[in-house]
Simulated assay, not measured.
Amino acid sequence: MILFGSTNCGVCQTIKPQIETKFSDKFPDLVMVYIDCEQLQAVCAQHGVFSLPVVQVFFMGQKFIEEIQGFSLLALGQKIEQVFMKMKR
């Protein structure tokens, strides 16, 4: 899981610890990476990130989920759980 954010993005700074706490407990195999788009603009552009926050979730190198700006962490967790269930089959 990649969280694209910025130190000047209040929403980004609010959801970052929530994502780390909620999802690390529920999905211990899911690795979260935070990318500060102020410092790594080229990386953000390569991933098509031009507004914040953005969450992208990859499984086996393929992007399965992308949430942009106003999204629910509860819904995001449900989507991740659905993909995990499909992968286990």
Rank of each mutant, 00 (worst) to 15 (best):
Val55Arg: 01
Leu52Gln: 03
Leu3Arg: 01
Ala42Trp: 03
Gly77Asp: 09
Val83Cys: 07
Cys9Trp: 10
Phe50Cys: 00
Gln46Tyr: 07
Thr21Asn: 12
Asp25Glu: 14
Lys88Phe: 04
Val49Tyr: 00
Leu74Ile: 15
Gln62Pro: 03
Thr7Glu: 14
Phe50Thr: 00
Phe84Asn: 09
Val55Lys: 00
Tyr34Ser: 08
Gly70Met: 13
Val33Ile: 12
Phe23Arg: 01
Leu30Trp: 06
Cys37Val: 04
Ala42Cys: 03
Gln18Glu: 13
Gln62Arg: 15
Glu20Pro: 03
Met1Pro: 08
Phe59Trp: 13
Gln39Arg: 15
Ser51Gly: 04
Arg89Asp: 07
Ile68Asn: 06
Ala42Gln: 09
Lys16Asn: 06
Gln13Ile: 05
Gly48Asp: 00
Leu76Cys: 14
Ser72Glu: 11
His47Ala: 14
Phe4Gly: 02
Thr21Tyr: 08
Met1Val: 09
Ile19Glu: 01
Lys86Gln: 15
Val57His: 01
Val54Leu: 03
Gln39Lys: 15
Ser72His: 13
Ile65Arg: 05
Ser51Val: 09
Gln18His: 05
Cys9Glu: 10
Ile80Arg: 02
Gln39Pro: 03
Val57Lys: 00
Leu76Ser: 13
Met1Gln: 10
Met85His: 11
Gly77Ala: 12
Leu30His: 06
Val31Met: 10
Ala45Lys: 12
Phe23Ala: 02
Ser51Pro: 03
Cys44Tyr: 01
Gln69Tyr: 14
Phe50Pro: 00
Cys9Tyr: 11
Phe64Ala: 14
Ile15Asn: 02
Val55Glu: 01
Val33Phe: 07
Leu40Gln: 15
Pro28Arg: 07
Ile15Thr: 04
Phe71Gln: 04
Gly10Ile: 08
Glu67Gly: 11
